[in-house]
């Protein structure tokens, strides 16, 4: 077996980012903190046995969902993976509905029929979370094609892991989006590991997404995925390009998951020094410090943190108290008529 030699943690980006206004920075911080608190709670509820099955957290990776979401506008579409709590919340889906879905309750966004891996809220443009690696890249491409056909200027953002870059659907979708100039932004969250195998051990190139961009006539874009400003600026550029008919982009955001792949996985197959190096680059305290350095008052940041904690507590309460789904709901919505009948 090849030894694991992950790329070193990228250096922090420049702290002076004049093109991001104060409101956006605060919005980014609000997102970061909300996502962090939510994921911490989701983990606890999993350990308590309230979140059943499996769940995949974005702890440590929140800056990507936050940075991209803040570059989108209402009506835009997002497609996420099974690791999709953060991406769903970042589009403004109410926390209660997401938490209740994790708990399998009727007040969940999918009435308990989706679960942690399938969060969807069409009214927020959250077109689903997909649990088959790579499958949603072609689907996101289709949503972008539809916007192009309807002439709506909607942009689609599609998030996926580094592992997805080695599946055929990734390559089919990128080529397809490129030849038809589709308004889609592909965002690879390269957290260096798939499940228990390092992406570097099984990939022919160093940067699994960016080093493939040229094959599809796209720019090679690598960004520090732990830096919300850097992600946001890159996302804004790609989103603007897509919205104005410039076609797709492929962004590789380098990041790291603080915990394991899923469930209670401690992630201890990863080298200790690597974990420590990345924990030292935790996006939440790093961004807080940056905002303080830029003159934002600590009180304002504290208030954001308190609000996030309160929102998570309220969502947890609402989810815990949520009714279990009606048994009849197992037999609804197979078909457009609302039912499940296959014969007369």
């Amino acid at each position: 077996m090849a030894t694991t030699t992950p790329p070193a943690a990228p250096a922090g980006s420049a702290t002076d980012v004049p093109s991001i206004d104060r409101d956006t920075r605060l919005a980014l911080y609000r997102q970061l903190v909300r996502l962090r608190r939510f994921e911490e709670r989701a983990y606890r509820l999993f350990q308590e046995g309230l979140v059943k099955g499996t769940s995949h957290l974005s702890l440590g990776m929140e800056a990507i969902a936050a940075g991209v979401a803040e570059a989108l506008r209402e009506g835009d579409y997002t497609f996420a993976t099974y690791r999709g709590h953060a991406h769903t919340l970042a589009r403004g889906v109410p926390m209660e509905g997401v938490m209740a879905e994790l708990l399998g309750r009727a007040n969940g966004v999918c009435g308990g029929k989706g679960g942690s891996m399938h969060l969807t809220s069409v009214e927020h443009g959250v077109m689903g979370s997909y649990a088959i690696i790579g499958a949603h890249l072609p689907i996101a491409t289709g949503a972008a094609w539809s916007s192009q056909l309807r002439g709506t200027e909607q942009v689609t953002a599609c998030f996926f892991g580094d592992g997805a870059t080695n599946i055929g659907a990734f390559h089919e979708a990128l080529n397809f989006a490129a030849i038809w100039d589709l308004p889609v932004v592909f965002v690879c969250e390269n957290n260096l590991w798939m499940e228990y195998t390092a992406i570097a051990d099984v990939t022919a190139v160093e940067h699994p997404a960016a080093d493939r961009a040229a094959s599809y006539g796209l720019e090679r874009i690598i960004v520090d995925g732990n830096d919300p400003d850097a992600v946001h600026l890159e996302a804004r550029r790609a989103v603007d390009k897509a919205r104005t008919g410039g076609g797709p982009s492929l962004i590789e955001a380098l990041t790291y998951r603080h915990g394991g792949h899923s469930r209670a996985d401690p992630g201890d197959y990863r080298p200790k020094e690597e974990v420590e190096a990345w924990l030292a680059r935790d996006p939440v305290p790093m961004y807080r410090q940056r905002l303080l350095d830029q003159g934002v008052a600590a009180d304002d940041l504290d208030a954001i943190e308190t609000q996030a904690q309160e929102a998570v507590d309220a969502a947890t309460q609402a989810a815990r108290n949520g009714p279990v789904p009606d048994i009849d709901s197992a037999f609804t919505d197979v078909w457009a008529d609302g039912g499940s009948s296959w014969r007369n």
Partner: peptide, 25 residues
Amino acid sequence: VRVRDTPISEEAILGAAMGAAMTGM
């Protein structure tokens, strides 16, 4: 625009159809 040749990419063809169907086509 409405009748379109695609690459030999069956997943992309059906994925594109699905994404388009979900969004009004």
